[in-house]
Amino acid sequence: MNIPDSNTVFPLTNYKNLCFLKNLVNNPNIIVGDYTYYDDFDDVSNFEKNVKYHFDFIGDKLIIGKFCMIASGATFIMNGGNHLTEATSAYPFAIFGGAWQDAMKGKSYPTKGDTVIGNDVWIGHDATIMPGVQIGHGAIIATKAVVTKNVEPYTIVGGNPAKEIKKRFSEDSIARLLEMKWWDWDLEKITQNVAKLTSNPEELF
Results as ranks from 00 to 15, higher is better:
residue 165 I to E: 01
residue 166 K to E: 02
residue 166 K to Y: 10
residue 166 K to L: 03
residue 166 K to F: 02
residue 166 K to N: 05
residue 167 K to R: 15
residue 167 K to E: 02
residue 168 R to G: 03
residue 169 F to M: 00
residue 169 F to K: 03
residue 169 F to H: 08
residue 169 F to P: 02
residue 170 S to W: 06
residue 170 S to I: 02
residue 171 E to Q: 11
residue 171 E to N: 15
residue 171 E to W: 09
residue 171 E to C: 00
residue 172 D to V: 07
residue 172 D to L: 03
residue 172 D to F: 00
residue 172 D to R: 06
residue 173 S to C: 08
residue 173 S to E: 09
residue 173 S to L: 08
residue 174 I to V: 15
residue 174 I to D: 01
residue 174 I to C: 12
residue 174 I to L: 07
residue 175 A to I: 00
residue 175 A to P: 04
residue 175 A to E: 13
residue 176 R to A: 02
residue 176 R to W: 01
residue 176 R to K: 14
residue 177 L to N: 05
residue 178 L to N: 14
residue 178 L to E: 15
residue 179 E to C: 10
residue 179 E to P: 07
residue 179 E to K: 14
residue 180 M to Q: 07
residue 180 M to E: 10
residue 181 K to V: 14
residue 181 K to L: 13
residue 181 K to S: 12
residue 181 K to R: 13
residue 182 W to F: 14
residue 182 W to K: 13
residue 182 W to R: 11
residue 182 W to M: 08
residue 183 W to I: 09
residue 183 W to Y: 12
residue 184 D to N: 15
residue 184 D to K: 08
residue 184 D to M: 07
residue 184 D to G: 07
residue 184 D to E: 15
residue 184 D to Q: 13
residue 184 D to Y: 10
residue 184 D to R: 06
residue 184 D to H: 10
residue 185 W to N: 09
residue 185 W to Q: 09
residue 185 W to I: 14
residue 185 W to C: 14
residue 186 D to K: 14
residue 186 D to N: 15
residue 186 D to E: 12
residue 186 D to S: 12
residue 187 L to G: 06
residue 187 L to F: 12
residue 187 L to A: 13
residue 187 L to S: 11
residue 187 L to E: 14
residue 188 E to V: 15
residue 188 E to L: 07
residue 188 E to P: 04
residue 188 E to N: 15
residue 188 E to K: 12
residue 189 K to A: 10
residue 189 K to R: 14
residue 189 K to T: 08
residue 190 I to F: 03
residue 190 I to P: 04
residue 190 I to K: 08
residue 190 I to V: 15
residue 191 T to P: 01
residue 191 T to Q: 11
residue 191 T to D: 07
residue 192 Q to E: 15
residue 192 Q to C: 11
residue 192 Q to I: 03
residue 192 Q to G: 08
residue 193 N to S: 11
residue 193 N to M: 12
residue 193 N to P: 10
residue 193 N to E: 13
residue 194 V to P: 01
residue 194 V to F: 03
residue 194 V to L: 11
residue 195 A to K: 15
residue 195 A to S: 10
residue 195 A to M: 06
residue 195 A to Q: 07
residue 195 A to L: 02
residue 196 K to D: 09
residue 196 K to S: 08
residue 196 K to R: 11
residue 197 L to A: 09
residue 197 L to T: 11
residue 197 L to W: 05
residue 197 L to V: 07
residue 197 L to R: 11
residue 198 T to L: 07
residue 198 T to W: 04
residue 198 T to G: 05
residue 199 S to M: 10
residue 199 S to N: 10
residue 199 S to F: 01
residue 200 N to P: 00
residue 200 N to T: 04
residue 200 N to Y: 06
residue 200 N to H: 14
residue 200 N to Q: 05
residue 200 N to K: 01
residue 200 N to I: 04
residue 200 N to F: 06
residue 201 P to M: 06
residue 201 P to V: 10
residue 201 P to I: 10
residue 201 P to G: 04
residue 201 P to T: 09
residue 201 P to H: 00
residue 202 E to A: 10
residue 202 E to D: 05
residue 202 E to T: 05
residue 202 E to N: 06
residue 202 E to C: 02
residue 203 E to F: 02
residue 204 L to F: 06
residue 204 L to W: 04
residue 204 L to H: 03
residue 204 L to A: 03
